[in-house]
């Protein structure tokens, strides 16, 4: 059975159709999931896509984390379900306390829309478990607030637990330790700024995104092997105490 992926649509999301198309091209099934629903039953994996959820008002992700669906997303993540936050989705996961840290404005105050080199640095996540460490990929980025930051103890925790899954080869935005993507302590929640779903068709450029998404779909098919656990990890790393905030 191909995995069934739910792609959450917030008001202002704009990459949901790209995500659905990418999943389908790679052999999965995908459905859009409106942010107002309160259950994610029946899905093997979830994607929080890119865009400007709730207009990015206040801060990117700040209002989206109060969307009704987010409680179900948090429970799903806690049970070990694969959750992938891309770009704005990464920002939502950080605001929701499902991943530690925060994304601030790019160094240099420029919106970045380009293709960058990234390196897989950990195989301990659903997005990279089928991709050998050291693999270099070319993936598009498209963001203004992609400059990942966290306190020093959180950073050393992420490093020690091998949770920095992707690093920029050349840091485009000032992100601490060149971080392009991180995962939860159990590896089942991943957030990244680059857009793998936009790199699956040679007509539009690099196809390296499919390498990551195949790993994600593979991990979603065999959820039995997923290690369940509360995700954010790194004590003191979540905004005001994590998911309960």
């Amino acid at each position: 059975m191909p995995p069934r992926v739910g792609v959450v649509v917030f008001p202002g999301s704009n990459c949901e159709h790209d995500a659905v198309l990418a999943v389908r091209r790679l052999g999965g099934t995908a459905d859009l999931l409106w942010h107002g629903v309160t259950t994610v039953a029946g899905f093997d994996a979830l994607v929080l896509p890119g865009g400007f959820a709730h207009g990015d008002y206040l801060r990117p992700g700040a209002l989206a984390r109060f969307s009704p669906v987010m409680e179900a997303v948090a429970s799903f993540a806690e049970e070990g379900g694969p959750v992938l936050g891309i770009c704005n989705g990464f920002q939502v996961l950080c605001e929701a306390g499902l991943l530690p840290g925060a994304l601030q404005k790019n160094r240099g105050l420029r919106f970045l829309c380009t293709t960058v080199g990234v390196r897989v640095d950990s195989e301990a996540s659903i997005l990279t478990k089928a991709v050998p460490s050291g693999t270099r990929l070319r993936i598009p980025i498209n963001h203004f607030e992609g400059n990942y930051t966290c306190d020093p103890s959180t950073l050393s925790c992420l490093q020690d637990e091998n949770r920095i899954v992707l690093r920029y080869v050349e840091n485009p935005n000032g992100s601490i330790d060149d971080i392009a993507g991180i995962c939860s302590s159990a590896g089942n929640v991943v957030g990244l700024m680059p857009h793998p779903e936009r790199a699956i068709d040679a007509l539009l450029g690099p196809t390296d995104g499919s390498v990551l998404l195949r790993s994600f779909l593979g991990a979603s098919s065999d959820r039995g092997s997923a290690r369940p656990g509360v995700s954010s990890g790194c004590a003191g790393s979540s905004p005001a105490g994590g998911p309960g905030r």
Binding site: L58, A62, A102, T149, C150, D151, S238, P239, A240, R245
Partner: peptide, 10 residues
Amino acid sequence: ADRLLANPVI
């Protein structure tokens, strides 16, 4: 302020 208006991480 703590739960919405500010993100205490930054």
